[in-house]
């Protein structure tokens, strides 16, 4: 960990001004990822602006559009356990609680969750070539040990996956990210927030230099009747997804009026295929139809030496999660074993 200076910002204006003043400054919120990366000498900030006490990003409130605004600095735990979220967006609660550990969720913030870096082994090894860490050095994962890597939207430059659970649910919910920067405030649709690696894998997202996330807007539709989050991983808790699925359904009887399906653990961003959701519209919520949707979602998926299993696993997970979403009171109890 390098040496750095440290200040506390009290307002978003102060934080954004701090970023403008020093291009090597970083914002410190929960610190669960930034401090980890700095200790591994993977990220080197000259200056940290502690935004934990910034006003205006600390609440969860109903917004004018009938939805909910999540303050960027509300912790993951407070979000997951917030009564409004539990009642109206249980899919989000479930996804958050599937991630990390209770201690980390008590520290990590909503804004920070969107900005976490990949867990790619080669990204984390300061001495291995990695285009994400050091553009132009190559991708070690491509022909290396790639069990945890991406199968969708990859590029020859990078096959890393984005590790968040929360964001998989936010993608399915079509959340909107609110940011503030030198040029003022703007909003970014969730699907546009995270990027695919293409030729610039060092850029995880579309946040511009000097911008900070101030909040996340959840639209009115929360799929509180029919939802499910399924996470498949190498141990039952406290590990990253090999494949995860967030599913939200609006049903009339057993007919699907609206479907949202997002995948985690398979790409550089939460993965959604709108054709598949369109396909499900008006169809029966049956394993057969979820299977067809799964085929559409995984279209174009390419496996590498050690992760080709993810293609079949993701398909099966989509089908299972669709069925689970039909009966969330049974399948979505907090702490229910992932083996179902």
């Amino acid at each position: 960990m390098n040496n750095f200076t440290y200040t506390k910002a009290q307002s978003t204006e102060e934080a954004v001004a701090g970023l403008a003043k020093n291009s090597q400054a970083e914002l410190l919120a929960g610190g669960t990822n930034l401090i980890d990366l700095m200790k591994y000498n993977l990220q080197h900030a000259e200056h940290l602006i502690d935004i934990n006490h910034v006003q205006g990003c600390q609440t969860i409130e109903e917004n004018s559009a009938g939805g909910i605004r999540l303050g960027a600095l509300v912790t993951n735990a407070d979000t997951a356990y917030h009564p409004l979220i539990g009642q109206r967006y249980p899919l989000l609660s479930k996804a958050i609680l599937a991630g990390a550990s209770a201690q980390i969720r008590n520290m990590a913030t909503n804004g920070g969750n969107l900005l976490q870096r990949t867990r790619c082994y080669y990204f984390y090894d300061a001495h291995a070539p990695c285009n994400k860490r050091e553009p132009g050095t190559g991708c070690s994962a491509l022909e290396g040990y790639n069990r945890i890597m991406a199968i969708l939207g990859t590029s020859p430059q990078c096959i890393a996956v984005f590790p968040s659970d929360m964001c998989v649910a936010l993608a399915a919910l079509e959340a909107v990210v609110r940011v503030k920067g030198p040029a003022g405030e703007r909003v970014i649709n969730f699907e546009d927030f995270h990027r695919l690696p293409a030729d610039t894998p060092h850029l995880d997202n579309s946040l511009q230099a000097g911008e900070m996330i101030t909040g996340i807007d959840l639209p009115e539709e929360g799929f509180e009747q029919n939802y499910s989050y399924l996470k498949l991983r190498d141990r039952n808790s406290y590990s990253f997804a090999l494949v995860s699925v967030a599913t939200g359904l609006k049903l009339s009887g057993d007919r699907i009026d609206l479907a949202r399906i997002a995948l985690g653990g398979v790409a550089h961003k939460p993965w959604r295929v709108k054709e598949a959701e369109e396909f499900l519209k008006g169809k029966t919520a049956s394993p057969e139809n979820f299977t067809k949707a799964a085929d559409l979602i995984l279209e174009g998926a390419v496996g590498f030496t050690h992760n080709a299993f993810k293609i079949e696993l993701a398909k099966r997970a989509i089908v299972r999660n669709g069925i689970m979403a039909l009966n969330p009171s049974e399948t979505q109890r907090p702490g229910a074993q992932p083996s179902l």
Partner: peptide
């Protein structure tokens, strides 16, 4: 203190951050 766990399985899950 959080009081979220309702049974043994949930205690196991919510204690899983401690190896």
């Amino acid at each position: 203190q959080e009081g979220k766990a309702q049974n043994r399985a949930e205690v196991q899950e919510l204690m899983s951050g401690n190896l």
